[in-house]
Simulated assay, not measured.
Amino acid sequence: MSTITADILELSVAERLQLVEDIWDSIAAVPEAVPLNEDQKKELDRRLEAYHLDPEAGSPWIEVRERLRTRSGS
């Protein structure tokens, strides 16, 4: 096990979740670097269409994130 991995595993669950969120945000900042296959593109199109049909059906990311943080105790 690398030193970095060992250090990460010493973080609390809340801290590790924050780290995962930070890493994900850094990936999302460069979407062109994440190639999608045709099935993934179709699924995204399907979800976008579902959203357009009923925009109130889902929850905004900020609400989902808060619910997750509340569950994790952070």
Rank of each mutant, 00 (worst) to 15 (best):
1 M>G: 15
2 S>A: 10
3 T>H: 12
3 T>S: 12
4 I>R: 06
5 T>F: 09
6 A>Q: 12
6 A>T: 11
6 A>W: 11
6 A>N: 10
7 D>W: 10
8 I>C: 05
9 L>W: 05
10 E>R: 08
11 L>P: 06
12 S>C: 13
13 V>M: 01
14 A>C: 15
14 A>Q: 12
15 E>A: 06
18 Q>G: 11
19 L>A: 06
19 L>M: 04
20 V>Q: 08
21 E>G: 03
21 E>L: 06
22 D>K: 11
23 I>Q: 11
24 W>P: 10
24 W>K: 15
24 W>C: 15
25 D>E: 03
25 D>F: 00
26 S>E: 07
26 S>I: 05
29 A>L: 13
30 V>M: 15
31 P>A: 15
32 E>P: 05
33 A>E: 13
34 V>F: 02
35 P>W: 10
35 P>Q: 11
36 L>P: 13
36 L>S: 15
37 N>G: 09
37 N>W: 04
37 N>L: 08
39 D>V: 15
41 K>Q: 15
41 K>D: 09
42 K>V: 15
43 E>R: 08
43 E>S: 05
44 L>D: 11
44 L>T: 13
45 D>G: 02
45 D>E: 14
46 R>G: 13
46 R>A: 10
47 R>T: 05
47 R>G: 02
48 L>A: 13
48 L>I: 12
48 L>H: 11
49 E>H: 00
49 E>S: 03
50 A>P: 07
50 A>V: 02
51 Y>M: 01
51 Y>P: 03
52 H>S: 04
53 L>F: 07
54 D>L: 01
54 D>I: 03
54 D>Y: 00
54 D>R: 07
54 D>P: 01
56 E>F: 07
56 E>V: 06
57 A>S: 13
57 A>E: 13
58 G>N: 00
58 G>M: 00
60 P>W: 02
61 W>D: 00
61 W>I: 02
62 I>N: 05
63 E>G: 00
64 V>E: 06
65 R>K: 08
66 E>P: 03
67 R>T: 00
68 L>M: 10
68 L>H: 04
70 T>Q: 05
71 R>E: 04
71 R>L: 12
71 R>A: 07
73 G>T: 04
74 S>Y: 11
74 S>I: 12
